[in-house]
Design a protein around this nucleic acid. Structure first.
Length: 530
RNA sequence: CGGGGUGUAGCGCAGUCCGGUUAGCGUGCCUGCUUUGGGAGCAGGAGGUCCCAGGUUCGAAUCCUGGUACCCCGACCA
């Protein structure tokens, strides 16, 4: 007879049934008609566990929660609606914070004349290897009819670079905008895409094209520019911790890790669940490097010409990757309520119906009135169990289940995504309960990831210990370093870890460099990084 | 840029070594019925330039040559 098994094996089975010692027995011979996929049926949305393969887990989350896809273009991603909604929330809040601190938005071109990039020596050195270059401006039909080719007649006189960052084009523009100290400070931000030709992709964390904001400010004094750098660093840290519930360490980069063209680079560093660090944002004090390269001077109060002082700062869609790797679990995405596109989902049990719809609509109205982003799942095809799993995968912080039983009791089932706890709550006053619960979840996510980070900052005093922690437990390792790039590179070579930063609130402490034994005044944080 | 892998239905894959009916399986999709408090069942149905080009052959998803695309790991990277 022909059988089809759940495992995906189908074919011809021979079954022999016989009576042995009064009992029926049967043997089967399987003659596989055709070799079928050997895999047992895998649940459509199965996610690789973090323990098994953290990298694959990340890929699964991004794909199965519909955050992003690989595109037809090498190393570029398509950000899908679910992923973009997260980015929009990040954008919206940061934009508010930038404006509260006096910044305005503008937009500069995607293309940069090649010659601009080379004006600042370190800058060009830092970016030259990853620039996309525009050489022609026209296509034509191939003479042999094989399709479209680049028209050799349409070669650009000066090639254009697709911006890897906009300092050069912006400072070239600022030259014409700034004449007097009265024109300063100039506090401008832009939301844009940039291109850095990468050789390897990790969705959200590293792609050739990505979205970001880049702030570029001009100041009359060094002190003011330095203060601006700090202001933004604080904005970033506050945003990361209070909105993304992602604890960060504010620090300063070593010379080796500094932005190409900066005098000083400050950063916020976060720690992912696998013990690797993620640079989540940077704020640069550029000194007068770009002002000198692009000849941007202003007349001070004494009518003397001075070069302008500059900063630049940015965070990117990489934050979405950081968000995933800070909170999510083996069941899917976990989002902090403040960033979650949908904060509450209502699931009718078993399916939509007049009575349940009415209760749900009322509930939604109450929640929306209090500013909660809520959705009612009206799909009448999918069963509740499927929806539960689906909403968990998508990371919706709170799920409410309403069925006839609940309505009879005047209750609702409340399930929180972060702890997977379920409880029955009275419908009366539920909106306030939810508001408090969302706050509690937000706080819990932050506390949980901060506790993880605290456990994963390890102080060591020998190189062997440094290596052992990096290879085993992971996380940040606090150790003495002699301050030289040479030692930093040697340690990187030996351990694959880099100095993530020197924390800004670092305590001074005399010690000896873990590698060279040279005197050191403070500890720095080492980690393997994304 | 080095190493590895993969291009076959929307998605995940088998078939390729050893050429041969009408190219299959799971899932998803459509229709209907029954279900529904943690990923439903049955029945029927739609859906394919087998990555591209050339070659070998009576015959190519399968063999040969060339090309191309993407992924993974590493190196590189503010």
């Amino acid at each position: 007879m022909f059988l089809r098994l759940k495992s995906g094996v189908s074919g011809l089975f021979l079954v022999k049934i016989q009576k042995v010692e009064g009992r029926w027995q049967f043997e089967t011979w399987l003659k596989i008609h055709r070799k079928m996929p050997p895999t047992i049926k895998i649940m459509a949305k199965e996610i690789t566990s973090r323990e098994q393969d953290y990298s694959q887990w990340y890929i699964d989350i991004v794909q199965k929660a519909n955050l992003a896809d690989h595109s037809a273009v090498r190393c570029c991603m398509v950000i899908k609606p679910n992923g973009f909604a997260i980015w929009e929330n990040i954008q919206a809040q940061l934009d508010r914070m930038f404006k509260e601190t006096g910044h305005v938005n503008a937009y500069f071109p995607l293309f940069i004349p090649k010659s601009f990039l080379s004006r600042e020596a370190q800058h060009v050195e830092g970016f030259a290897k990853e620039c996309a270059v525009i050489t022609h401006h026209r296509l034509m039909n191939a003479p042999d009819g094989s399709g479209v080719i680049v028209d050799p007649e349409a070669k650009l006189e000066e090639e254009l670079i697709v911006r890897p960052t906009s300092e050069t084009i912006i400072w070239d523009t600022y030259r014409t905008w700034i004449n007097s100290y009265r024109d300063l400070p100039l506090l401008i931000n832009q939301w844009a895409n940039v291109v850095r030709w990468e050789l390897r992709t990790r969705l959200f964390l590293r792609t050739t094209e990505f979205l970001w904001q880049e702030g570029h400010t001009a100041h009359a004094s060094k002190e003011e520019a330095e203060r601006e750098t700090q202001t933004i660093l604080d904005v970033y840290a506050k945003f990361a911790e209070e909105w993304m519930a992602m604890p960060v360490i504010k620090g300063v980069k070593t010379a080796n890790e500094r932005f190409a063209g900066a005098v000083e680079t400050y950063c916020i560093e976060a720690l992912m669940q696998d013990g690797k660090a993620l640079q989540a944002g940077t704020s640069h004090f550029l000194g007068q490097n770009f002002a000198k390269a692009f000849d941007v001077k202003f007349s001070n109060k004494n009518n003397e010409q001075e070069y302008v002082w500059a900063t630049s700062w940015g965070v990117s869609t990489r934050l979405v990757g950081g968000l995933i790797m800070t909170h999510s679990d083996d069941d899917g995405l976990v989002l902090p309520p403040k960033i979650a596109p949908t904060q509450v989902v209502i699931v009718p049990i078993p399916k939509p119906g007049a009575e349940i719809d009415e209760a749900a609509e009322k509930l939604m109205k109450e929640l929306k009135a209090k500013g909660v982003r809520v959705k009612y799942d009206t799909d009448d095809q999918k069963r509740p169990g499927f929806k539960f799993a689906e909403h968990e995968l998508l990371g919706i912080p709170v799920r409410l289940g309403i069925g006839a039983r609940d309505l009879a009791e005047g209750k609702v089932e409340v399930a929180r995504r972060d702890t997977k706890e379920k409880s029955n709550q009275p419908l009366e006053g539920i909106a306030n309960y939810i508001i408090d619960l969302l706050d509690e979840i937000q706080q819990h996510l932050f506390d949980r990831s901060k506790a993880y980070r605290t456990e994963h900052i390890t102080s060591v005093d020998t190189f062997d210990d440094l290596r052992e922690v990096l290879d085993g437990k992971g996380g940040f390792v606090s150790a003495h370093w002699d301050g030289t790039t040479e030692t930093e590179l040697k340690i990187k070579d030996l351990t694959k870890a880099t100095i993530r930063c020197i924390p800004v609130d670092n305590e001074l402490e005399n010690g000896k460099c873990v590698l060279t034994g040279q005197p050191s005044k403070q500890r720095v944080l080492f980690a393997k990084a994304y």
